[in-house]
């Protein structure tokens, strides 16, 4: 496995160097579906990818698949509504659980049982996260068994074209943007990636490739103060939770919040991907030693896992 995760590219460009450092030469398949309507506006991206870009145009393909198949489009719309309802119920449960854990955390830890109560409160949050992912799995399975999205005629055509383009590429680059759109497009049009294909992904692109997608923004104007598990990701790598824009989106000065975040995801590496970050995962798809991560003590430090 050759996976490189990058920080946001807006202010400090590291993608060009990452692509040039790949041990392969030839076309680079690109997924910028996260840009949605701006997907075709990819001139700058082509330059960043060293003039080797082959845009897979997954967002365009998704829109085309929906336009060509009204039954599937309507079913998708309803399916998304059901998923939104589930996300809403999940965040309702989550908010109270996280608030409870934070309140316990701020209690005097010399009081007997505070430590035990905290551990239990964090386990409760994890249980809610698991419940959410399991429920989403069930909703997705129901939808797939009813509507067979991968077998819809236009989807099959696009999957074939994408497979051909990927087959002739030597690497894959995935940009940031809307992480839900990236995930949807990857799931619908891209089959399992060749294990040897180098992948360079940044921001939302990096998030979509993990085991689970964690949304976070401590500064959200809509008042959603707690990180949410969104969906299972593609699962290209394991035990890594990418956190692009961490310094902009997380209150890293608040040790309780940071520690709560890190503990919630247990032994996973909560990987800080700020501007300029370049993190090459290990061959097993794990966080490499030295990568910047959130710790259980509530600070950003370097990863020292075995």
């Amino acid at each position: 496995m050759n996976v490189t995760l990058l920080g946001p590219q807006r202010f400090r460009l590291s993608a060009r160097t990452a692509i040039r450092n790949l041990p392969v030469d030839g076309p680079v398949a690109a997924i910028n579906a996260g840009w949605q309507e701006r997907e075709a506006d990819d001139g700058e991206l082509g330059d960043v990818l060293d003039g080797r870009m082959v845009n897979l145009q997954l967002f365009h393909r998704w829109e085309d698949a929906l336009a060509a198949d009204p039954e599937y489009a309507e079913a998708s719309r309803h399916h998304n509504q059901v998923l939104d309802d589930q996300q809403s119920l999940y965040t309702l449960r989550l908010r109270h659980a996280v608030d409870a854990a934070n309140e316990i955390w701020r209690r005097d830890d010399s009081i007997p049982l505070v430590g035990e109560a905290l551990g239990n409160a964090i386990e409760e949050i994890r249980a809610i996260d698991r419940w959410h992912l399991d429920t989403v799995d069930r909703i997705e399975a129901d939808f797939e068994s009813t509507y067979h999205p991968h077998e819809r005629l236009r989807v099959v055509e696009h999957r074939g074209e994408v497979a051909g383009l990927l087959g002739s590429a030597v690497a894959l680059a995935i940009t940031g943007g809307h992480v839900g759109v990236i995930l949807k497009c990857l799931q619908l049009f891209v089959g399992p990636l060749p294990p040897t294909m180098p992948v360079v992904a940044w921001s939302a692109g990096a998030m979509a490739l993990g085991e689970q997608i964690v949304l976070f923004n401590d500064n959200a104007v809509d008042g959603s103060r707690h990180a949410e598990v969104y969906r299972r990701g593609v699962g290209l790598f394991r035990h890594v939770v990418p956190l692009p824009h961490a310094r902009r989106r997380l209150h890293l000065h608040d040790a309780v919040r940071v520690a709560g975040f890190a503990r919630r995801f247990g032994g996973d590496c909560c990987l800080v991907l700020d501007d300029g970050a370049v993190v090459k995962l290990t061959e097993e798809g794990r966080c490499p030693p030295g990568a910047p991560v959130l710790t259980h003590e509530g600070v950003v430090a370097t990863w020292e896992a075995a």
């Binding site: 946001p8 807006r10 996260g34 940031g176 943007g177 809307h178 992480v179 839900g180 759109v181 921001s203 939302a204 998030m207 949304l215 976070f216 923004n217 959200a220 104007v221 809509d222 008042g223 959603s224 949410e228 969104y230 692009p244 824009h245």
Partner: peptide, 18 residues
């Protein structure tokens, strides 16, 4: 209105990581 409308009708901000 920003606090109110974004709470009632949350935008896609939380999904977007450029």
């Amino acid at each position: 209105l920003q606090e109110g409308l974004s709470w009632i009708f949350p935008g896609p901000q939380k999904f977007v990581y450029e």
